[in-house]
Write a protein that binds this DNA or RNA. Structure first.
Lengths: 347, 347
DNA sequence: GTGAAAGCGCTAACAA
DNA sequence: TTGTTAGCGCTTTCAC
């Protein structure tokens, strides 16, 4: 008798459904070993004899067997699935993080499930429920802001969580980010140091950008500069909204000599609008962006911007998650990856 | 006795692991119904009495139960998971498709697993194996080119497949795309119609772009134009490679009055380089892009480009997949969503 | 409308 | 090194 109660050599009757796909049982039967042995040959080949390994490999090659990870996940309580939540992937500064995350995880045998919250806390909650239902081995979040409900759920689920792109002394679990307050302050100081006095800020309507904005304004005030002009544009930010923002500023008769934009795309919009009006950048107007996207360094004029190592955020988040999933303790749970100001031609 | 052999009201002993999470059994026990009844209350509420529904809902609220979709997927052979493969998400023209896909699927209760093949057939194959192992209810592919091995695997797995962003008479399964050959031809005709005679093409090194390129060159020849100048840049394309490409063209002494770029970012690069050299666009040089990304219409000059409705590709792909997953037959398996030429200032 | 039984495909625990 | 047993948490089948 074989282990599943089927007489030797007979075709097993599947009393229910069965997708018809090749299963580990089929492979084991063909290889002439027990299912668990075939499982070991697949997952921990060092634990089986060369003889068994050969027979099982042959059987797999002959049948085209692809392990059913869903079943494996259920049995082992390890899904090898990681979820990531971003506000949006459209033209976003988070792409480098997601890309690095995907690649680093793939290298360790994990896959990514991507969700978009659309800057909407309610959708984020719904998404969280859907994600938790999949029992991923980890969740990577963009930002630290969650509804109390979402936070509670996440803690209750007991799934490792990495929050990113921000800093807080009280993360849910692990954290990889930088200080938006520091960014705002440093940019104000940078512009001041370059002789700019009449500052403006064009900012997307999202929480982190608002925090940079506030810090920027406070720092300007502390430096004795006139009040900062603000233009808020909807998130996600676009080239178009950058153009519109500069128009608005100019039409309001604002006397500005430098603009801090909450994204590089917005900055490109401001530069584009300036150029179309014959306003020289940086002579008449300095422009500084945020993100240091691929194109920033190659614009004409080259865009000064706040450089965030988004890829490193993704990589570090992946490392955190994998460490945890493999059961290794994570020594430091909070990593401040910092930022720098890429000084180029537009300031 | 309850159905799982545990005496009424007693704590079930879990002989093996058990994540400790609340299960449907727990909910059922608290609600005083059988597990299957609780399952029905959750999944097909119309099939249970109001009384049962209330008791089960209460129990769920009290326990914070989140259904384990992994177990559900295994039992029902429906994962409600869809996989998508893109070459890369970095600054890509596919983002609109992925975004629309995610949203449309989410609205029907499906989630997206995202994989990046990095324009590498081998990685695509590895990815495919990882994906098939998850037994998704559908797979959305970018492009139609797969290794024979990958194609074989996909067919063997019996999972609904939608190929996108291209056209072929022999899709693996379903298809949403447009003709790259037509694009190349139409752009050549468009430039010719606008009085341009000395054409060049700057193209990313990927298969679809090459096909547009070839069709563009052939059409130019058919129109009696001088031979088209080609510059091939690595994929993914960037602003930088666009600038470099125009420099190369100019340094080679090429006498060109129009450039067709295989992406809008590339086109922005060409425009940027032209501007930095004092070369007027469109007067001295016409530039046309591909993709009609968000920023294209708002550049200065506004970028003429090939408009692809990427979001619609994503939505249609989602519809295909969901129809199939719900067991409804898909009437037409091939959709040509076409394209148009957005005529703006750069030509 | 509700429930008992069986099992999806795999692996942890324990035994030999 | 290999195998037996017993599930992981859910849903299908079939019966009432």
């Amino acid at each position: 008798m074989t282990s599943d109660g089927v007489k030797d050599g007979e075709t097993p009757r599947r009393s229910r459904r069965g997708s018809g796909a090749v299963t580990l049982h089929d492979v084991a039967r063909i290889a002439g070993v027990a299912p668990i042995t075939a499982s070991r040959a697949v997952n921990t080949p060092t634990q089986v004899s060369a003889e068994v390994l050969r027979k099982v490999s042959d059987a797999i090659a002959r049948t085209g067997y692809v392990p059913n990870r869903t079943a494996g996940a259920l049995a082992s309580a390890r899904s090898r699935l990681i979820a990531a939540v971003v506000p949006t992937i459209a033209g976003s500064v988070f792409l480098a993080s997601v890309q690095a995350l995907t690649e680093t995880l793939a290298a360790s045998g994990y896959q990514l499930m991507l969700g978009q919250s659309g800057y909407d806390p309610q959708r984020e909650d719904a998404l969280l429920e859907a994600i938790i239902g999949r029992r991923p081995d980890g969740i990577v979040l963009t930002g630290i802001l969650h509804t109390p409900e979402g936070r509670r759920r996440l803690v209750a689920a007991g799934i490792p969580v990495v929050e990113t792109w921000d800093l807080t002394p009280t993360p849910i679990d692990m954290l990889v980010g930088f200080s938006h307050v520091d960014v705002g302050r440093r940019v104000a100081e940078h512009l001041h140091g370059r002789g700019r006095r009449r500052l403006a800020i064009v900012s997307g309507d999202d929480e982190r950008a608002r925090r940079r904005e506030d810090a920027f304004a406070s720092a300007a005030q502390a430096l004795g500069l006139p009040e900062v002009r603000h233009v808020i544009v909807p998130a996600p930010t676009t080239l178009r909204s950058g153009r519109a923002a500069l128009s608005e500023l100019l039409q309001a008769g604002a006397d500005v000599d430098a603009v801090f934009c909450s994204s590089d795309m917005l900055a490109l919009g401001v530069i584009t609008e300036a150029q179309s009006r014959g306003l020289a950048v940086p002579e008449a107007l300095a422009v500084i962006g945020f993100g240091d996207l691929e194109f920033a360094a190659d614009l004409h004029p080259a865009l000064s911007t706040v450089r965030i190592n988004g890829a490193e955020i993704g990589r570090q988040a992946a490392r955190f998650i994998v460490e945890r999933a493999e059961g290794r303790p994570v020594e430091s749970r909070i990593v401040d990856i910092g930022f720098s100001i890429a000084e180029r031609e537009s300031v």
